[in-house]
Design a protein around this nucleic acid. Sequence first.
DNA 1: ATTTTTTAGACCAAAACTAGATCAAATTTG
DNA 2: CAAATTTGATCTAGTTTTGGTCTAAAAAAT
Lengths: 230, 230
Amino acid sequence: MNVQNPAKRRGAAEVASDIRKAIEGDVYRPHDRLPSERILSETHGVSRGTIRDALMRLEREGLVEIRAGSGTYVTSNDDLSGQKIIADARPLELIDTRFALEPHICRLSVLHAQEADFERLAALIQKMEENAHDRRVFSEADTEFHLELARSTGNSLLIWIITQINDVRSQDQWARMRRVTLDEQIIRTYNTQHRLILDALRNRNPERAAMLMKDHLETARRSLTRAAET
Amino acid sequence: MNVQNPAKRRGAAEVASDIRKAIEGDVYRPHDRLPSERILSETHGVSRGTIRDALMRLEREGLVEIRAGSGTYVTSNDDLSGQKIIADARPLELIDTRFALEPHICRLSVLHAQEADFERLAALIQKMEENAHDRRVFSEADTEFHLELARSTGNSLLIWIITQINDVRSQDQWARMRRVTLDEQIIRTYNTQHRLILDALRNRNPERAAMLMKDHLETARRSLTRAAET
DNA sequence: ATTTTTTAGACCAAAACTAGATCAAATTTG
DNA sequence: CAAATTTGATCTAGTTTTGGTCTAAAAAAT
């Protein structure tokens, strides 16, 4: 497992990364004592100060506990970290929010996007068209498309918001909804709309792009409410 | 990873995209340190300036943290990084984002708000008018006004987003901004606009409310850019 | 034609790293 | 119990690495 790896890379961050992997890989288990700093500095080919730096990083992460005079111990992971649930929005709330954001994102994209951004968007559209039969792959690319669109504005706040929204989108309720609403007909419609939006962006026509995005979202809303009624 | 790619120009956006994929693909993991800028510029066949540009984009997205003299680290989201990501959004980015959200919030408010919501908004407007001379109190009430407006839509996702944005506005950097941009003249303008918006909402006129909100934000943007020039 | 982006350098200050020594706390040994 | 040993904690001084900044010219993009 632990082969010689001399002269590969050094530095506290790298050592910390190595030890972290060893802990995650059960080489060192909870309550175990790690080798002493002096030993570690030899095996990792790095000075003791660097080892101490690495261990202190791991301690700040809560992976390890350093006890003076005794040693460094792997923390018992009795406490599993609770993930933060930011928002459990209902599907229609999500659509309303996207109705606010995405048309305006189109306008900003026209102002800030560069050719490379358009190429990335075009590649994603192509992926969606080639996978019109595979709901999962299509949906993934669709999510990525809307995120990439946000990225093309260069506005980090908007990018962050869309990222958060995508987290909501990928939750259970949505997975179910996707199964109900997505058929090959709808996917073809979406593909056409995506392409029209990209064309409008490339032609630097902000209002047309925004309008097309509204159409796109309106389609999504309709297929959603229709599914909810059945 | 990627071999020589002659005759193909790469830009900062592409490099950022590559590194982003590497992070998402667990090539670089949370807490890891990326190779130094000088190394990255070699492996990506691109100058150091371009690498720096790419890394700064990723930092703005919150994927990465650059520490001078130390290195560039993949951010971990097991701590409270959600707050930190948007902590240093630039003023104009924030205005752009509000441009996307708030006019549409007005439309939704017309659909969902009830009389009690309007009364709360009216009370906040009155508070702002009575404190036109006190920037701090005015600003607090102003923030609360826009949040209450979001609340009146009943859309939990929108409320959450506006809450996050308000956290940004309460930071130090913004206190300075407020001092520069807010004079009693501007405050009076804001007050008039707030009242017009509320009137449009009460008359259930969504498009007029949205347009007035755009005017309001345009005023804010102008006073911001004007302050930046001086 | 003009603006923006990229390149290829050089230099700086801050941070990290090394290689040692000494101290203090915990553990083991006699 | 007391002494010896092991372990982490702290400090120092000198070297190397790293991001931050600046510039002028070349290349792309618009």
